[in-house]
Nucleic acid binder design. Structure first.
Length: 676
DNA sequence: CGCCATTTAAACATGG
DNA sequence: GCCATGTTTAAATGGC
């Protein structure tokens, strides 16, 4: 159980440290470096680029001045446009912050998908709204850009003649710009409202830390280049395909670099304490990892016939031309290096996110463990599990907030977050949970993080998995490469995957054997080495439609897990469709065959539906979208979710941690679980 | 209440 | 004899 956590902890530490504060500094540095290199005859940056950069610089300076002028009409102190070291520090983050809320960033999207369950309809509406807003903004943006260009030209002329940015013309343009800024502001406010309304509806939960940034009040200043850059970032990550028209491509970074790297000249600084940068930069990798996923093709930088190098969207006919392009355009030079650094930054941000989620998990598990060992009255794992069921009640409000609604007649409870319940179905996909009724009306947040973490949860928390032995055994067998396992290997799987099965070995092993023998679906096959067990899927399926039952004590949450599975699937779908949420698909968590996830979930779902459908007549807002999409039908032809398997399947590889091979290590003294 | 699935416990068989 | 592996029986629980 140690080997899985090794990497994670490692990434934890570094991520936490870097992500929060120093991260942007790093970015800044890298950007600066790019810029400084850009001035020397760099390989990549041509004359046009340089000119562009210069223009941008000039523009920045001018804009700075104008804004300052505007703002300080009463204050008669500052005159030189180059002196305002402080203002930009205020302005820049603002501009950055401005972009984020305008369009729901992938992160926010992700949050939506993670934390709340949305029906596809809701998602669609949401997306449509976003699209509409984006469109409008794009138009404004373009217009604004034109304005900038005008200003730019004038500025250049003036620069040659000696800077006198106070001329009437300038002011006019500036006024126009301000007008547009205001328009953009309006747009942004609209967006804010949108988000807020989402929040109000409980559809979007923004974590305290993150909320501050995107939703923070906006000031006036905007820096065009950054704005543009950010805009591109956002839009490109949202509509990856639309960005075919890539007149910006590689220039993006350089321009940004200039602006950020010329604080002395133009007093532009990327706010060091605004994590907004990191947030934004997060978009880039998403695009990348997207291609990463959707392309069996091999190269993570190539997808959809487009170069996925950050900031580059060059169209490459085929893989060969892509390689060519890669070698030519993204050779080892300063720019690429800097971009690489930026990418590192991005990764760090993601790691930070991961770290946060892991922390959350840790807290959850700690919490659960403490609670479980405390009172004798409640047999730990069982109650824990059932408590999870309850937790969803509370967590409908906010996954973050600790649910404090443990008071329930039947179960003495430990308030729990979405932890295991979410987990169960997701990671245990193929496992057939013990289905019960107990309609789950609550929408529990399903987060990708949870998806990734659920296995971790069972690995580390002594919570009894809400699956029957048969299901688990089947799962174990199916997960094996050969679809067959020896008894001992099955044991090992149990102990590896579930902390719960690291005790009372005699008991559960007996149960495993018993199940193997009992169920026809498990077929013993003589092998060279001995005997292995396989699954007769037909048999297994056969018994499914029959009555369902299960471990009584566990039952309650079963339904939960099932209802979770549906929205989760939808969330996955949405996220895949959205193209911008590949996160957590990294195999870092030791996820087993996520590739099967969709299938398995669907499978489980279908199975569950047969039994639960009638019960779930209630109407909760975000309720299992999949139900809408896949009525009560049982498995048939592959459904939409299959598309998701592409990306997901990538994950399948790096899961299996080394075997335990120490089944006996867990042979503790039998602990009586006093089941009432 | 009966049926059934599941879990748990235990007896027993077999082979290394 | 011990242990791992299998098989089988039985009791208890709980959903339907």
């Amino acid at each position: 159980m140690m080997q899985e956590s090794g990497i994670e902890t490692k990434s934890n530490g570094s991520a936490i440290q870097n992500g929060a504060s120093s991260g942007n500094h790093l970015l800044e540095c890298s950007l600066r470096e790019v810029r400084s290199n850009g001035e020397t005859p760099s390989v990549e940056i041509g004359a046009a680029d340089l000119a562009h950069l210069q223009q941008q610089q000039a523009l920045q300076a001018a804009r700075q001045f104008l804004l300052q002028q505007q703002q300080q009409q009463q204050v008669s102190g500052l005159k030189s446009p180059k002196r305002n070291d402080k203002q930009p520090a205020l302005q820049v983050p603002v501009s950055v912050a401005m972009m984020t809320p305008q369009v729901i960033t992938p992160q926010q999207m992700q949050q939506i998908l993670q934390q709340q369950v949305l029906t596809p309809q809701q998602l669609q509406v949401l997306l449509q709204q976003q699209q509409a807003l984006m469109l409008q903004q794009q138009q404004l943006q373009e217009f604004y850009k034109k304005q900038q260009e005008q200003l730019q030209l004038q500025l250049l002329q003036q620069q040659h003649a000696g800077k006198q940015p106070k001329e009437p013309q300038q002011q006019q343009v500036a006024t126009q710009q301000l007008a547009f800024q205001q328009q953009l502001l309006q747009m942004q406010q609209l967006q804010q409202q949108h988000l807020l309304s989402l929040q109000r509806q409980g559809l979007l939960t923004i974590q305290p830390g993150q909320a501050a940034l995107p939703l923070q009040p906006l000031a006036q200043g905007m820096i065009p280049t950054e704005l543009q850059q950010l805009w591109k970032e956002v839009t490109s990550s949202h509509t990856a395909e639309e960005t075919a028209s890539n007149n910006h491509s590689s220039l993006d970074l350089s321009t940004t670099c200039v602006s950020s790297s010329a604080p002395s000249k133009t007093s532009l600084i990327i706010n060091p304490h605004a994590s907004t940068n990191g947030q934004l930069s997060v978009h880039t990798p998403k695009r990348e990892s997207l291609s990463h996923e959707e392309h069996s093709h091999s190269h993570p930088l190539y997808g959809h016939g487009v170069c996925k190098w950050p900031g580059c969207e060059a169209v490459c006919e085929d893989f060969q031309s892509f390689l060519k392009h890669l070698n030519n355009e993204h050779a080892l030079d300063d720019r690429s290096t800097a971009q690489c650094r930026v990418q590192m930054q991005v990764v760090q941000q993601l790691e930070l996110q991961l770290a946060k989620d892991k922390e959350r998990l840790q807290a959850m598990m700690t919490h659960l463990h403490v609670k479980s060992t405390e009172p004798k009255a409640t047999p730990q794992p069982l109650n824990l599990v059932s408590s999870v069921t309850l937790s969803k009640t509370a967590s409908e409000a906010s996954p973050q907030s600790l649910p404090h609604t443990p008071t329930t007649p039947t179960t003495p409870i430990t308030p729990v977050i979405q932890g295991p319940s979410v987990i169960t179905t997701t990671s245990m996909h193929n496992v057939e949970p013990i289905r019960r009724r107990c309609p789950n009306k609550y929408n529990v947040a399903i987060s990708s993080a949870d998806l990734a973490q659920n296995q971790e949860f069972y690995k580390n928390a002594e919570v009894r998995p809400p699956f029957t032995y048969a299901s688990l055994i089947r799962q174990a067998i199916l997960e094996s490469p050969e679809k067959q396992l020896t008894l001992n290997e099955i044991y090992n799987w149990f102990t590896r995957m579930f902390a719960y099965f690291r005790r009372n070995a005699a008991t559960w092993k007996n149960a495993v054997r018993h199940n193997l023998s009992l169920h026809k679906c498990f077929v013993r096959v003589e092998n060279v080495k001995g005997a292995v067990w396989t699954v007769d899927e037909l048999e297994f399926q056969k018994r499914r439609p029959q009555k369902i039952s299960g471990n009584p004590s566990l039952i309650k949450n079963i339904q939960t897990s099932h209802t979770y599975c549906t929205p989760l699937n939808a969330a996955l779908q949405a996220s895949m469709a959205d193209n911008s949420i590949p996160l957590y698909t990294t195999a870092s968590m030791g996820n087993p065959t996520l590739g099967n996830l969709a299938n398995a979930m669907r499978e489980d779902l279908n199975g569950a539906m047969e039994h639960t459908n009638s019960n779930e007549s209630d109407s909760s807002p975000g309720r299992s979208p999949m139900q809408a999409m896949h009525p009560v039908h049982v498995k048939e032809e592959p459904l939409d979710p299959d598309e998701n398997e592409g990306p997901l399947s990538l994950v399948t590889t790096a899961n299996h941690s080394p075997d335990f091979d120490h089944d006996r290590d867990y042979e503790d003294e039998p602990v009586n679980e006093d089941i009432e």
